[in-house]
Structure formats: C-alpha cells, structure tokens
Nucleic acid binder design. Structure first.
Length: 437
RNA sequence: GGACCUGUGGUGCAGCUUGGAGUGCACGCCGGCCUGUCAAGCCGGAGGUCGCGGGUUCAAAUCCCGUCAGGUCCGCCA
C-alpha cells in the first residue's frame, strides 16, 4: 500500500529532484514500448512523465500494460531531471504503482463537441484547460469579495425564493411553495436595495439568479451567477461606474499576475489589464457613432442592438485602444422604473451599461430613492404600486441615495478567456434545452 | 417566439450538389511489432438501423414531406 497522505502535488516536483516521492493522479497517456513504458500522469493542470523499464520489474510492467486511460493511480518513485524529456525536463522512475480506481473507456474524445462534453461535464472538466478555468473563476470571485470588503461593505445572501412576480412576471420560474406559488429570483435587486434602507455600509453578493426567458444565444443561460453590488451615498451613476471600473481593474490585474501565462498557454489569449478610467459615451452619442459608421439600427425602441454594441466597441477600440466602454444615460423608455431620471431631462436616466469586447456585462444605475417619485415611475411604467408595496416600504422610512450594478460572472469569464460561449465557462450550464447533468 | 443551419461506428468529420453495395479520413478501442517515447511510430482487427417516420424511384446517407434532437443569429438580458 502506498501512503497517499505523503503525496506531493505535481507542480512542486522540481523542489524534490533526486528524492523518492508519492504522486497521485489520472493516467493521461500510456506509451507501452518493448523495453520501456511511459505514463503521463495528470493532476489538475499539471502533467508529469513516469517511466518503467520492463526487465527491472515484470510484475509492474504487466500492471502498466493493463492500465486504462483516466484510471486513478498512486505511484512511488524517484524524481529524475533529464533534459531529453520535453515535459518539464523531468520524470519519475516508478518503484511502486497502485491502481486506486479503474476507468472504463472514456465516452468523449478530446475533439468532442460542446454538447457531448456537457453531457459528460465531469470528464470534460478534467482537462487542464477547464481546471484552469475553475481556478480563474475562483480568483475573480475572490477579487470581487476582497475589493468590496476593503471598501467596508458587507456580504449578503438574499433569498432566491420570492413571494411575488415583482419586476416582470415573464422572466420568472414559478415553483410550488406548499399550498401557494413562489418564484425563483431573477435578480437580488430589491433585496440589495433593502440592505441600503437597512443602513448597511454597502452590500454585495455573488449568487445564482434565474431567468425564464427562452434565450437561444451563446451568451445566455437560465441560471447563472450574478455578481451584485449596491452602494449608499452615491451622488450620481458616475460614482457607481467609478467603483466598477476600479473593481474590474483589480480583478484583471490579479488574474493577469497569477494566471496570465497559463491562460496564454491554454486559451491563446492575453489577459489585458484595462487602463483607468474606462471610456464613457452617452447613449445618444453612441447612437450617433453607430449611425455614422453606416449602421441603421432596425429596432424601433431607440435602444442599441447587439450589432450596434459590437460596432460601438470596435469604434471605441480604434479611438482609444480600450476594450471596455460605459454607455451612459439611457432613455427612460428602455430602463426599469427604479432607475433615477436625469434631473435635467426626465427622458433620460442616470444609468449605464458596461460593454466588454462588444458584449453587455453589466447594467447599473443610481436608484430612485424618493418614495413619491419612485411610486410615480411605477405607475408610469404601467405597473401596480400595490404589488410592489413591500418594496416601496424601503423608501418610506429614510433611505440614502444609492446605486449599484449587476455583473454576469459567466460573461466575464467567457470574454476573459476568449471563449465563444458561456456554456464553456459555466461549471454546470443551464439553458432552455439543458437541465442535465 | 422568429429566421437559418446540423444530425453518418465511442469521438470529430468527409460523402449529399449530379441517387447506384455502409465508401473514406483522423482520434479512441482490441491484438501484434517496436533503440527512451514524449500528440510516439508501424502492421492488422472489431465496431453502423447514415436521428426517426413516410413518400418519389428499378435503386435513397444522398431528392421531397413530416417529426424529434441540437446549434447559430435575432428578440429578451447580465
């Protein structure tokens, strides 16, 4: 029996050349020749070559001949540096090998398409590329959390079961809740604003949100992790954008330092740390820029469509070299009732979207915190203030001016890693056509 | 919800336009060979209801209709 409690991670092997070590992992490759056998052992993103000369240990040789790819093994052996070896210039001379878990034939190849890989996601996640993805995701969330805590904010975990349709019924999943109906939260919007009314020093949350829209695109899912924030004492949406650009700067800076090289190796994309401040254009300016670019937006509600957003991003990139752009001051007609109106022009809102590489990753705004104004905006939008009574209560007993935003984690990861689909970067993707595994 | 596209051994594809025997390629699998390989190499082998149903035809993976499954873009949105 090999004592696996004494194992080393493959990544630390270079500190143990000449020593006997215990390693564990998956059989990634087995090259069985007449005189000598090689195994490539994989653990996480790391690989190392193992070697055995047949004539020195026929029993071990037989064991290796019968090994299946992806079986889990523990080995004991001496770390030897050898410049002939392309894989990090080192290998382990096996003295003992133990099969901990036998793998059947793997049902997906490394060239398997996305849909099949998602069917076998736990096998797909074993790839060094996806192991890196999960570590990058963790670092992104940690950066978010650190930044918010450093700014004196508190973390909330708001309920995902909601009693009423509130914002818009169409987006919501309905669930049975004992003898009545409940709805899965499509955003923590109301609950994080409640935190402001509660006098908390700013709130943040990373958690699941649910969207019942049957959206068939590469950037939508029905359940995803939303990174949410709400800040008190903002003087305008500029305060919120200021917060967000610094947050993203910190996160991307950390990702670049920690994983930049590995991301380049695995995903062939550089991690670009964005300069501060991010470019800003008003919605009206953006519309003009896109029109001047020769594109007439087909939709009639006055908002930008995805093609317009891609073109805008391209123009901003050409003019400033920047991959991000805040589009600000959206018309009130395309924004929800709780966005604060521009005091100079009630047709506009103190709101923004953040585009990265032409894709929306954030919607944010200063919120309307004045009860009477908010109530009027609800009525203006054709909604029933009665149905929003408990939300409106937040603003009846003293609520600071505030603002915030929501950031789609899967979209950030997709763009960060240069992937073309959120399904690639979601631990377990949920969409209109996928509820498994 | 709308438009378009795709379903062929375990995986990824080609074959379809112009119908003619399940034909081919790469990976994987099984067996054999093999001077230290390194995405090893060489030889051989197994593995298929061409998504499903109907139609046209002497003959359908191929053409037509339907259906199911998936995808891309749009709408919705982060």
């Amino acid at each position: 029996m090999i004592d696996i409690s004494t194992r080393y991670p493959i990544s630390e092997l270079s500190d143990h050349v000449g020593e006997e070590v215990v390693l564990t992992g998956w059989v990634a490759v087995a090259r069985k020749q007449k005189a000598v056998q090689f195994i490539v052992l994989r653990e996480g993103s790391d690989l190392v070559q193992l070697v055995n000369e047949r004539d020195k240990d026929p029993l071990l040789a037989q064991l290796i001949d019968d090994l299946h790819l992806e079986s889990v093994i523990a080995i004991k052996g001496v770390v030897e540096a050898d410049p002939r070896i392309k894989l990090n210039g080192m290998e382990i001379r096996i003295s003992e090998l133990e099969i901990l878990s036998v793998a059947e034939d793997i049902p997906i190849g490394k060239d398997a398409g996305l849909d099949v890989r998602l069917d076998w996601r736990f096998l797909d996640l074993r790839s060094p590329k996806n192991q890196l993805l999960m570590r990058v995701q963790t670092l992104v969330e940690q950066g978010f959390r650190d930044y918010c805590i450093d700014h004196g904010m508190v973390e909330i975990n708001s309920p995902k079961l909601m009693p009423s349709p509130s914002e818009s019924r169409s987006e919501l999943f309905e669930v049975k809740y004992f003898d009545r109906k409940a709805y899965l939260a499509q955003s923590p919007q109301f609950y994080k604003q409640m935190g402001i009314a509660a006098g908390l020093p700013g709130v943040f949350e990373t958690g699941p949100v649910f969207r019942a829209n049957p959206s068939f695109t590469s950037r939508h899912d029905t359940e995803f992790t939303s990174v949410d924030i709400e800040i008190p004492w903002v003087s305008s949406h500029e305060t919120v954008m200021n917060f967000e650009e610094r947050l993203l700067h910190l996160i991307l800076n950390r990702v670049q330092e920690r994983f930049g090289e590995q991301i380049m190796n695995q995903y062939q994309v550089p991690v670009v740390v964005p300069e501060l401040p991010f470019p800003r254009v008003t919605h009206a300016e953006a519309m003009k820029m896109v029109l001047a670019d020769g594109y007439e937006i087909p939709r009639s509600d006055g908002d930008l469509d995805p093609e317009a957003e891609r073109r805008l991003a391209r123009i901003i990139k050409e003019q400033t070299g920047h991959e991000f752009v805040f589009v600000t001051d959206y018309p009130s007609g395309v924004r929800p009732f709780y966005h604060m109106r521009d005091p100079q022009n009630s047709e506009l809102t103190r709101s923004f979207d953040l585009l990265w590489k032409g894709i929306e990753i954030t919607t944010g705004a200063q919120r309307e915190h004045r009860y009477d104004v908010l109530r009027n905006q609800i009525i203006e939008k054709g909604l029933d203030p009665e149905g929003l009574a408990s939300y409106l209560d937040f603003f009846r007993f003293g609520c600071p001016p505030h603002g915030g935003f929501g950031l789609g984690l899967t979209r950030v990861l997709m763009l960060l890693l240069g992937e073309s689909n959120v399904r690639e970067v979601t631990y377990l993707y949920r969409g209109p056509n996928r509820l498994t595994p």
